[in-house]
């Protein structure tokens, strides 16, 4: 049964990489079921994240957000800060796709704080870029400028010319 769980996970990932997002969802749902049977929260966390990603490419952003929220809860329970940051970043981007910029900002700020704690300058740069765009969408140009300047500073530091 444990091997079946891992295989469903691998199968889901392969469907995803091939662009078969519906089949990816079916496999990852099976993986999730087995992870729950075993009380394997790491595997559960991976399944929720993979499901969220697949729903993004199916254009079902609300469903994706729900799966990313479960990923975030589990990352916090497992005390995995890097994964927590990644889940916040995914949620920020998903809410941007949903044009809910206030919520997007909440999650991008959460991502920014963790990136700073972890000394992840690339993550911090991405958070600033995203925040600049979300504030622009809201018409808050002062905040947009603040984050654009931070993004420029970090991009120079990391040598990211693009």
């Amino acid at each position: 049964r444990a091997a079946q769980g891992r295989t469903y996970g691998n199968l889901g990932n392969t469907h995803y990489l091939l662009g078969n997002f519906r089949n990816a969802v079916v496999s990852h749902e099976q993986r999730l079921l087995i992870a729950k049977e075993f009380g394997d929260r790491s595997a559960e966390r991976r399944a929720y994240c993979n499901l969220g990603n697949a729903y993004i490419f199916l254009g079902e952003f609300e469903v994706a957000a729900e799966h990313y929220k479960r990923t975030l809860q589990l990352a916090r329970q497992l005390q995995d800060r890097a994964v927590e940051a990644q889940a916040c970043y995914s949620l920020g981007n998903t809410y941007t796709l949903l044009q809910d910029y206030e919520r997007a900002i909440d999650y991008h700020l959460k991502h920014l704080i963790i990136a700073q704690d972890l000394n992840d300058r690339i993550g911090e740069g991405r958070a600033c870029w995203s925040l600049g765009n979300a504030y622009t969408a809201l018409g808050n140009h002062d905040q947009a400028m603040h984050f654009a300047e931070k993004h420029l500073e970090i991009s120079r530091e990391t040598g990211d010319r693009s």
Binding site: G9, L17, R46, N53, F57, N93, W129, S130
Partner: peptide
């Protein structure tokens, strides 16, 4: 103020490009 219906957010597009080949491996 009225918002534009469709926005092209470059940071989101970049995220989706990365996401397309990102999987949580067993």
């Amino acid at each position: 103020p009225q918002r534009k219906h469709v926005i092209q957010v470059d940071s989101v597009q970049r995220w989706m490009e990365d996401l397309r080949h990102m999987t949580e491996v067993e």
